[in-house]
Design a protein around this nucleic acid. Structure first.
Lengths: 186, 186
DNA sequence: GCTATGTTTGACACGACTGTCAAACATCAT
DNA sequence: ATGATGTTTGACAGTCGTGTCAAACATAGC
C-alpha cells in the first residue's frame, strides 16, 4: 500500500461529531466538516462518499462512548440512585456545550430522513434500553422491567425535547426526572 | 382600500401548514410554500416577509385547533380514561398522514433555531400543560398535579421522538402510554 | 370612468452547496 | 531510485434557494 491517508481518521471523526452536534445533521454541510476537521472537502468525499457516511462513522464512536458513560452511571447499589445518576448523566450530555447543543441522537432522529441514520439511532436507543433493563434488576417496580426500561428511555427523549424549548434546562430537566423516578419506583 | 389580496389567507395558511408538517420547518422552502398554497413566491414575500412569519401564523392556527382537540379528549369522567384518551389523541396526531408526519411541534422545537418559533412551541406546551393540569383535578396521584402535568407533557414529547425511530409506532406508542399511565395513577 | 392603492408576476442577480475530476502529490515495496 | 498506488488539491459546472424589484394588474371609492 502506498498513497496513504494524511489525516488521522479517529481525530477527524471526533471533530466531525462536534460539527454535527453543534449544527445538527441537516444544517451541517461538507464545507463545515472540511473546516471542522481540517481535511479538504474533496478528500472527505474521496474517503467517505458524503455527509451521511461521515455521520454514521462519527455517530458510532459517539454511541459507544455514550453507552460506556451510561453503563457507568447505572452502577450504584440502590436502583433509585442508579436511575437518578443515569438521568443526570443524560442531562449533562444534553446540556453540554455553550450554547448547549441538545441531545445529538434525538435531534438526529427528528431531523434525519435517511434509513441508515434512523437505524443507527434506533440501535443506540435499543442498547440504552438494554442497559437500563439490566440496571432495573431487583427494583421494586409497578411495571415489568422491560416496560419500565422502555419508559425510561422514552423519558430521556422527552427531556431532550424540553431542553430545546425551555430556559434553565438543568433545573427543568432535573425536576422532571425526579418526578418521573418517584412515580416509577415504588 | 383597493389593491386587494387575491388569495384566501386562512386557506393558504392551512395549506402552508401541510407543507411544513410534511417537510419540517427547515427543509421547507418558499418554493414549496408557493407550490403548496398556489400563491406566487413573490406574493408570499410581499404579504408575510418570509418563511418564519408564515410558519408562525400557520402554527398559531394549528395550535389552536390542536388544543381544542386535546381539551375535548381530556373530558371523560375518570382521570385514567381522560389521560388515555388524551394520549390517544396525541398519538393519532403524531402518526397522521402517510407516511406519517410525526409531531409538528416536537419537530419544530428540535429543528428550529429562531427564538420566535421556539416561543410559539413553548406556548403550545404551556397551554397543553395547563389543560392536563386541570384534567388531573381529583386524580389519585403520587405527584403534585403540576408536576404530574409536566411529566405528562414531557412524555408526549418522548412519544413524538419514538415515532421517528421505531416501526409500528401506533403499537409502540400505545404500549408506552399505557405503561406511563399505570405508573402515574395510583 | 378615473384614480389611488395595494397586489401579483416573472425576471434578475446573487450566494451557498454539491459532486466530480485531472493533475499534483506522498508514500510504500521492490 | 523508481514505479505503483492511493490521496490531496483546487477548480469547475451545475442546482437550488434567496430576496428584490419594476412593471402589469385588480379593485374600492369617488
Amino acid at each position: 500500500m502506498a498513497g496513504v491517508r494524511q489525516f488521522d481518521e479517529e481525530t477527524a471523526l471526533r471533530q466531525a461529531l462536534e460539527v454535527f452536534w453543534d449544527h445538527g445533521f441537516q444544517r451541517t454541510t461538507m464545507l463545515d466538516l472540511a473546516a471542522g476537521t481540517g481535511v479538504q472537502r474533496g478528500s472527505l468525499y474521496h474517503a467517505y462518499g458524503g455527509k451521511e457516511q461521515i455521520f454514521l462513522k462519527a455517530f458510532d464512536q459517539f454511541a459507544a462512548s455514550f453507552l460506556d458513560g451510561a453503563e457507568a452511571a447505572l452502577k450504584g447499589r440502590d436502583s433509585r440512585i442508579r436511575l437518578l445518576r443515569f438521568f443526570d448523566y443524560c442531562i449533562e450530555s444534553i446540556i453540554s456545550g455553550s450554547p448547549s447543543r441538545g441531545c445529538l441522537s434525538t435531534r438526529t432522529a427528528v431531523e434525519a430522513g435517511a434509513e441508515p441514520v434512523r437505524r443507527a439511532v434506533r440501535k443506540l436507543l435499543d442498547d440504552l434500553e438494554e442497559l437500563v433493563f439490566q440496571a432495573l434488576d431487583g427494583a421494586d417496580l409497578v411495571l415489568k422491567p422491560r416496560e419500565a426500561a422502555r419508559l425510561v428511555v422514552a423519558t430521556t427523549r422527552g427531556l431532550a425535547v424540553l431542553e430545546r424549548v425551555y430556559d434553565d434546562p438543568r433545573r427543568r430537566l432535573g425536576d422532571t426526572t425526579r418526578s418521573f423516578v418517584r412515580t416509577l419506583l415504588r
